[in-house]
């Protein structure tokens, strides 16, 4: 379809519709170290992990999660190099171990589990999460808050039980580790977000 025929009279273009990521993205989208957002060995590294569940409470083994966040200094410019590739072999080099790209991508495993290691964001204390899955026709956005900032308009506008779904919980028995589960449906359904 040509660009001209796409243009509506009010000067905006109608968007290309979303479709499900399907079951077979696994050899295309995930990449080695996709969840290693923190530079290797950084002392401030935190782990955020959890499970993705469906409406029956069963873990989803074919979801794909993406994470985007501010750098520790609060900047939101990111940096290239999340998927750094090797021009010699054509394979993945992995991240360069220095730059903080702010971006991570991980598939859930056979248990529906994921984990990312990152640095705490500066400014707004949350990781933005984008959820894709077979069976999900249009991705979903949510947020994993690492703490509950006073006066956050999103959190303060939610019922306590709903607010709870956005709070990553520090695990007492694990070092610098947060648990953040995602429920696509059901009693514990996660709060999902719309941006306009």
């Amino acid at each position: 379809m040509s660009e001209q025929s796409l243009m509506e009279t009010n000067g905006t273009l109608p968007p290309t519709p979303s479709h499900t990521v399907g079951p077979f993205y696994g050899y295309a989208l995930p990449f080695p170290d996709g969840g290693e957002i923190a530079p290797a060995g950084h002392p401030d590294t935190i782990t955020v992990h959890g499970y993705v569940y469906d409406g029956a409470g069963d873990p989803i083994p074919d979801a794909l999660l993406e994470f985007w966040q501010a750098a520790p200094d609060g900047s939101l410019t990111g940096a290239p190099g999340s998927l750094r590739r090797d021009p010699v072999t054509g394979g993945y080099y992995g991240r360069n171990g220095v730059d903080f790209t702010g971006f991570g991508r991980v598939p859930t495993d056979a248990d529906g589990h994921y984990a990312v290691r990152t640095l705490p964001p500066g400014g707004a204390p949350y990781l933005s999460v984008c959820v894709f899955a077979r069976g999900l026709l249009h991705h979903l956005f949510t947020r994993a808050y690492l703490d509950e900032p006073a006066g956050d308009t999103l959190l303060s506008g939610l019922e306590p039980a709903r607010r709870e779904t956005l709070l990553a919980r520090a695990e007492a028995d694990k070092h610098r580790t947060y648990r953040f589960d995602i429920h696509l449906q059901g009693d514990k359904e996660t709060v999902f977000l719309a941006f306009d």
Binding site: T20, D54, G55, A56, D58, I60, W68, Q69, A70, L76, T77, G78, A79, P80, S82, T101, G102, F103, P121, G123, A124, Y126, S128, A133, R134, G135, L136, L137, L140, F141, L154, G157, L158, R162, L184, Q185, E189, T190, V191, F192, L193, A194, F195, D196
Partner: peptide, 27 residues
């Protein structure tokens, strides 16, 4: 496959101010 994999609650609207993290993105 969509039956158990879609939220039943409405999405919660976030009215963006320029500080909203999602208004920027990975490079």
């Amino acid at each position: 496959s969509s039956a158990l994999r879609h939220p039943k609650q409405p999405l919660v609207a976030v009215h963006g101010d320029p500080e909203t993290v999602e208004l920027s993105g990975p490079a």
